[in-house]
Design a protein around this nucleic acid. Structure first.
Lengths: 111, 111
DNA sequence: AGAGTATAGGTAGAACTTCGAGGTATAACG
DNA sequence: CGTTATACCTCGAAGTTCTACCTATACTCT
């Protein structure tokens, strides 16, 4: 991620990836594109962040992977959410909302 | 921070500390209490996170420190924002807002 | 007087994440 | 045939936060 972005990205990456995968089976390279596209270029996911994250999520049983052909006729590793991943996503979204609420409380505090 | 919290805290701690200090000179121990109080116990800042963060911010010239007596009659290191710290806080708040907007775009995407 | 708790400061090492920089390989295009 | 886009990957550096510890003073309770 670009420096300014990465400062704040920490901790949200897994949630964002799980969310994109929740929209339907998709391969790694396309996940980065989707995230960049939907966030209107705010997030620019580097491959050095993407692939380790995907492996992490797969190792933890949150994602299932399968090799298939992409739309462009090439091999791609397609990821889908496991039920564990779906629960994790729900929990992370809830936690994200509680976090932003808590941060708002502090930022809006005027002495 | 409690495990669940810390996952998402990354990157926000400096901003929160700067914001609390912006409300008026305050010593380290009291910063942690204020943050916990205002966030309604969502954030429980550990000393092992607090003090290194304060030293970091001081080293970067964002905070100025001065030893004074606390309300309870003890020595405390009081922190205040430098002008550089004030600018940094503004920038971090702006960036935080852009981040939450970008995350919202992704979380609200329904395929 | 002594014990315990809250206040106030701090450090060291581990764990984890992300990034930057590199590598491999195929397909498509000029 | 060279370049660009796609698609996968790894490694090491850098940074942050946490856990676990340490010191010391003030206050409260017995």
């Amino acid at each position: 991620m670009g420096e300014a972005r990465s400062e704040f990205l920490k901790g949200t990456l897994d949630m964002l990836i799980l969310k994109i995968v929740a929209l339907g089976p998709i391969h790694g390279y396309a996940i980065a594109q989707r995230i960049q596209q939907i966030s209107r270029d705010f997030f620019q996911l580097q491959q050095g962040s993407l692939y380790p994250a995907l492996h992490r999520l797969e190792d933890r049983g949150l994602l299932k992977a399968e090799w298939k052909m992409t739309e462009t006729g090439r091999e791609g590793k397609f990821y889908a959410l496991s039920s564990k991943g779906r629960k994790k996503l729900e929990a992370e979204v809830q936690n994200w909302e509680r976090l932003t609420d808590a941060v708002s409380l502090i930022l809006r505090t005027a002495e």
